[in-house]
Amino acid sequence: MTAALADFSTAPKPPARRWPSPLMLGLIALLIVAHVFAWQGTDVSIKSLIEGRKGMADFLDEAIPLDLTWSTVLRPGLEAALVTLYIGLLGTTLSIPFALGMGMLASRATTPNTVLYQATRSILSFLRSVPDVVFALIFVCAVGLGPFAGVLALVFHNTGVMGKLWAEAMEETDLGPRDVLRIGGANGVQTALHAVLPTSLPQLVGLLLYRFDVNVRSSLVLGLVGAGGIGFLINEAIKTFKFDVMATHILIVLVLVIAVDQVSAQVRKRIGA
């Protein structure tokens, strides 16, 4: 009440307002132009979206009711979903030693020298930039159709992603304990094992669970290119126009993904990562 009546004119003048710089305005303009081109380049059209309504309805008409025949649809679907889960699990677990080793070399907190640091970072970014589907196609050629190709694909791609995430998590932890041990004469491996890793462990486990979650979802897509699991069955159902079968499989996938997501979220919450 009194504040509204008070006279502030004797206080020092506030500094001048800062307007966006010409560089910033230029960047904003560039971004807008990029979106206009993208809109045209991807044939975005509200009209076809509205007209496509009918096709969508036809599709749903064929998909519902779901085909829930136990012996020919539901049981194979559940079994394949289990294989998908297995692919995600093994793909994640088997990549742990590689991601940990390379992550430690690619983290400023633990790396022994800058040459190794740069080299491992390049390898990790290569593994990361090749999509897991491409790895799967390569391994399907190498070891044949089936879930093993999917596991290999995930190990390679996940090493790249998790190695980088772990390296960054280690860099973000408090490096004080590391310095104390280093001052006392501990070597690089000892400081990593007794300061950096135990300090960042909750973050590393949280990222591991997040990657497991992502990898189970990825292994669905891997099935589409022949790397086993329920993705393979969905692909088959589409190719033979059995949309009711496909819808059943998608429902199974939905349940699987939500379950994995919930479990991983709960565990992450418990460990505080």
Binding site: G176, P177, D179, I183, G184, A186, H194, T199
Partner: peptide, 26 residues
Amino acid sequence: TAMVFQQIHLVKRRSVLDNVCAGALG
């Protein structure tokens, strides 16, 4: 030479004993 800091810098998740033992790593 050992150093103690304002921020203490123990590994908080590890036991008190393990933290003390870590001083001997060298």
